[in-house]
């Protein structure tokens, strides 16, 4: 149960965003990131933030979940904000206290950078993890990279590895907890002592964990062989990815957004973000 909160970030749904083609979602997410970096002033940021709110509405996901996903970022956000507020020199001095001076530009810059980080994280998680299953994502990636297979890059193998890794992360986490409990029951102590002692205390966990992972890998290999797996060649897929009008709409909106950002950047006045 615990693990599901940390890893099963996919939120079941049938929204516009859920139904988009994962390949397009990947492409558009990259596009969107570029747009976010193109934003230079407060107007463009406002526009992109509005579009992000539109995305949340399209995903039909409870905004609380998205806000919660930003929690781990609080530290990073605070640190960047503080650095910007205290270090950036500008024209309008607000106040100074000994060696520290705070400028209005510093505050605006800090604000914009925080908005940028929040936009980056929320848009990518929204498009890629919350509304796309990991397997659809690896499928999408595999197909997008398919041309690279022509130059002998192991695209299928890579995506199969990703799939299996995703499948086994929760299993191995569970296993780790079991082994830790078993060794704790034999008096192992993982939380006190010097760094060296703690590192040593990990041995009774890591060795059984590795052995079990290898055993699983071996069994899985046999199971896959029994299920007639012989590599990517000649394989078909149950779920063929289809592009739909949704992806076209997505593309058009993103292109328009990009154009708008470029134009506003060029003609609108106001403070420009640095960094």
């Amino acid at each position: 149960m615990k693990n599901s909160v940390a890893f099963g970030q996919y939120c079941e749904g049938k929204s516009f965003l859920h139904k988009m083609d994962p390949r397009w979602k990947l492409v558009l997410a990259v596009f969107y990131i570029v747009v976010i970096f193109l934003c230079k002033n407060i107007f463009t940021f406002a526009l992109v933030a509005l579009s992000a709110i539109g995305l949340v509405a399209l995903s039909e996901i409870n905004p609380k979940i998205i806000i919660r996903s930003l929690k781990p970022l609080v530290m990073i956000i605070c640190v960047t904000a503080i650095i910007n507020i205290f270090w950036l020199k500008g024209e309008t001095l607000l106040f100074s206290f000994g060696p520290i001076s705070v400028y209005l530009e510093g505050i605006i810059n800090a604000f914009l950078i925080v908005v940028r980080v929040i936009l980056l994280v929320s848009v990518t998680t929204l498009m890629l993890t919350y509304t796309t299953t990991p397997i659809a994502l690896t499928d999408g990636l595999e197909q997008l990279l398919a041309p690279l297979a022509k130059i002998k890059l192991p695209v299928h193998e890579f995506s199969m590895m990703m799939t299996i890794a995703l499948r086994f992360i929760p299993t191995l986490l569970e296993e780790t907890e079991k082994i830790m409990n078993a060794q704790r029951a034999r008096g192992a102590d993982f939380s006190t002592g010097s760094l060296k002692q703690r590192a040593k205390a990990l041995v009774p966990i890591l060795i059984p964990l590795f052995i079990s992972a290898f055993r699983r890998a071996e069994e899985l290999a046999i199971a896959m062989e029994c299920r007639c797996y012989t590599g990517g060649e000649g394989r078909t897929r149950m779920n063929v990815l289809h592009s739909s009008y949704r992806d076209l709409v997505g593309l058009i909106v993103t292109v328009l957004l990009c154009l708008a950002v470029v134009l506003i950047n060029k003609f609108a006045p106001g403070y420009r973000i640095s960094m």
Partner: peptide, 28 residues
């Protein structure tokens, strides 16, 4: 308390880790 109440988990063989059986038994 963990020394006074010994717990043998399910499939306990998966917790063995040391070089020899003797060392492993001596871990606790």
């Amino acid at each position: 308390v963990r020394f006074r109440v010994g717990l043998v988990m399910q499939y306990p063989e998966y917790q063995l880790f040391d070089e020899t059986v003797k060392k492993d038994i001596a871990f606790g």
